[in-house]
Design a protein around this nucleic acid. Structure first.
Lengths: 234, 234
DNA sequence: CTGCCACTACTGGTCCAACCAGTCAACCAG
DNA sequence: CTGGTTGACTGGTTGGACCAGTAGTGGCAG
């Protein structure tokens, strides 16, 4: 059996989770949260635990706290930041496939541009990319290994693009993937991606285009490869 | 005179800022932070204020806190999320132009894909887009108004793309723009974008492609338009 | 001498009970 | 109606205490 760690999450973490769920489910009338003291009483924890949770919600731009006044819920569509992905992707144990599709679209867009930039700025990374692709071809049935190698492949491209924001976006997207795996089970996620992982010829083409310094070909082949899963999931 | 609000940041906010700067400047030996009690003593604030700041740093994946053990700095390149943009863009009063360039590249990539998706999913938004473009053409010298209208234009496209993550990314990028304006002064930022704002013909082409439901033309025209400022800033 | 274990001195996590500092609405004097 | 006062809220901050987990250290049993 897979021994999952027994949560034992800090209280402020649990409070954060509960408030987050309530906010995303729009459970607060008029978007006004109860006072810190009331929340502390309701959750039966100390006020400091509530405050630490609220600080995080504030950081995520989900609430607006003001001294003297009341704490209000903000519209995450207009105020939220990309980091909400992990929280929006799986809510109440259910996967929001619309959000998942958004993530795949974004992955394709950024992945393609990163490949183009990589071709210009780090064509030499082509050797390492090719090696990973060969590695993947050697164990076409080990989905877990394919998944790991695939991450290595795209991480190398993003690194080669020299674009720090693409690197950070990749972190966010991979985080979402991890959340998804935790919710659906890693096996299911691997199966969903199987079709893509097996197109190793396409990965080789991307690597070749990068090695040739051909930005537009790298962009095109990368986009086509990454779009496959979008249309499959749509 | 421009009446700027007198900041009266909460202590935990100030502590957060100080720690953030120290972390990004790699000022902690071995990447180990002092204990909460020591930090509280050093900053001359209560330990709770330090804890609230640390919770936020934890949320940003900048530190790893563990009970009993010590608090360690994480590598933001591999752990950080996109929301770090605002903090990385301006550090110690200096603009990091490499990060700014990254943001412009990402804007172009996502803006182009959003335009393509918008053409497919919301071609009718073309009327509203056209109207904003006309509005911009009517006051080509009012840079502040051009800037505001430009935000409206692209926000409409992102909304039309139906991609929630693009919406959240837009929020993050606009946040970065605001930080930049706060650091350099709004006038300077407007001047930098002036060249782009004046290409209203291009905006009309994007709107027309969306109205025609021509995804590829929308992508191409949008990308070319948004890339102008990248190459100018590079 | 070696290996294990208990002790100790830290670390972060939680709580309580205040008090300070803003906000807002009700009220009252002009 | 206008303006200021008041009081009951709100969040912000403090100090001090204790719980809980970690890791280094010393000494004891083998």
């Amino acid at each position: 059996m897979a021994l999952a760690p027994v949560a034992a999450a800090p209280l402020s973490e649990q409070v954060y989770r509960r408030l987050l769920d309530a906010i995303l489910a729009d459970e607060f009338v008029e978007g006004v949260l109860p006072s810190e003291r009331d929340l502390a009483a309701a959750f039966e924890v100390n006020r400091h635990a509530v405050r630490e949770a609220l600080k995080r919600l504030q950081q995520s731009r989900l609430v607006d706290v003001s001294q003297g006044g009341s704490t209000r819920v903000l519209d995450y569509r207009t105020e939220g930041r990309l980091d909400l992905l992990a929280d929006l992707l799986v809510r109440a144990g259910r996967v929001d496939w619309k959000v998942a599709r958004s993530a795949l679209e974004m992955r394709a867009s950024i992945g393609a541009d990163a490949a183009a930039l990589c071709a210009v700025r780090a064509p030499k990374s082509h050797r390492a990319l090719r090696k990973v692709a060969d590695e993947m071809a050697s164990h076409p049935d080990d989905l877990a290994a394919l998944d790991a190698d695939n991450v290595v492949f795209w991480t190398a491209i993003v690194e080669g693009s020299g674009n720090l924001l693409y690197r950070l976006s990749l972190n966010t997207l991979l985080d979402g993937l991890k959340i998804l795996a935790g919710s659906l089970g890693a096996d299911i996620v691997y199966q969903l991606a199987r079709e893509e992982y097996l197109q190793i010829t396409e990965l080789r083409e991307v690597a070749a285009a990068i090695g040739a310094g051909d930005a537009e070909r790298a962009r095109k082949t990368a986009y086509e490869h990454l779009s496959r899963t979008v249309t499959a999931a749509g």
